[in-house]
Simulated scan of single mutants.
Amino acid sequence: MLNRFFPVLRPKGNVESTRQPDLFSMMEPFFSSPFPARESFGKMMPAVDVSETEQAVLVNAELPGLGAEDVELHVENNYLVLRGEKKEEREEKKKNAVHRECSYGRFSRSIPLPTEVQSDKVTAKFKNGVLKVTLPKSEKARTKRISIES
């Protein structure tokens, strides 16, 4: 596929005889697959959004197909650690998979927190495949407004 777009840049001569790998040959599988990211990573890695307010750090994690009972959550060394397992539903009927993108299995994700939090006051809610975690900031991490005299 890359040959079509960059024929001039392709090395000339016998590439197999050189010691260095051909960059085009290495990149070919990546660009020829319609779903390269899924094939490369192969594991379930939940997508997360991390935001911050004056009072707390907010984390939203997308966990489609999971329930609250499938997820473990804890704060450790200024990281929010998210672990769980997505189990594949198996049917007894024989069927041939034509194309599979869904990931199954165990996952673990460590999310660095931008500031120190009160781990004993963390709350989490799970609804419609989205985990919403609120991590209150510690008192010393909160911004304190200082009045200026004139």
Results as ranks from 00 to 15, higher is better:
58 L>G: 01
69 E>W: 05
19 R>V: 15
56 A>C: 04
7 P>G: 08
82 L>I: 12
118 Q>I: 03
40 S>L: 14
47 A>K: 11
91 E>K: 15
125 K>D: 15
116 E>D: 09
63 L>A: 08
54 E>L: 11
111 I>E: 02
51 S>D: 12
67 G>R: 10
137 K>I: 02
2 L>R: 05
75 V>P: 07
28 E>K: 09
118 Q>N: 09
131 L>C: 03
48 V>H: 09
139 E>I: 00
140 K>N: 10
46 P>A: 14
57 V>C: 05
43 K>I: 12
120 D>Q: 05
108 S>G: 06
109 R>Q: 15
116 E>Q: 11
49 D>C: 04
126 F>K: 03
33 S>W: 04
11 P>G: 09
38 R>C: 05
3 N>H: 12
116 E>T: 07
112 P>G: 04
122 V>L: 03
31 F>S: 02
71 V>T: 09
28 E>V: 01
42 G>R: 11
123 T>R: 12
136 P>R: 05
52 E>C: 04
118 Q>Y: 03
111 I>M: 04
31 F>D: 01
139 E>W: 04
55 Q>S: 14
116 E>Y: 08
123 T>Y: 03
127 K>C: 10
77 N>F: 00
115 T>G: 02
44 M>Q: 08
120 D>L: 01
17 S>W: 02
103 S>V: 06
47 A>R: 01
27 M>V: 01
120 D>F: 00
108 S>V: 11
42 G>Q: 11
144 K>T: 06
59 V>Y: 08
121 K>A: 13
52 E>M: 14
33 S>M: 11
90 R>E: 15
94 K>N: 10
1 M>Y: 08
5 F>E: 06
87 K>R: 15
145 R>I: 15
47 A>M: 07
101 E>C: 00
88 E>A: 15
26 M>K: 05
35 F>L: 02
120 D>N: 07
112 P>L: 08
142 R>V: 03
74 H>A: 08
120 D>V: 00
53 T>N: 01
49 D>N: 02
62 E>W: 12
9 L>I: 12
130 V>Q: 12
25 S>W: 10
8 V>A: 14
45 M>K: 07
34 P>N: 07
76 E>T: 04
4 R>S: 10
86 K>R: 15
143 T>Y: 10
134 T>E: 13
141 A>C: 00
59 V>W: 05
19 R>I: 14
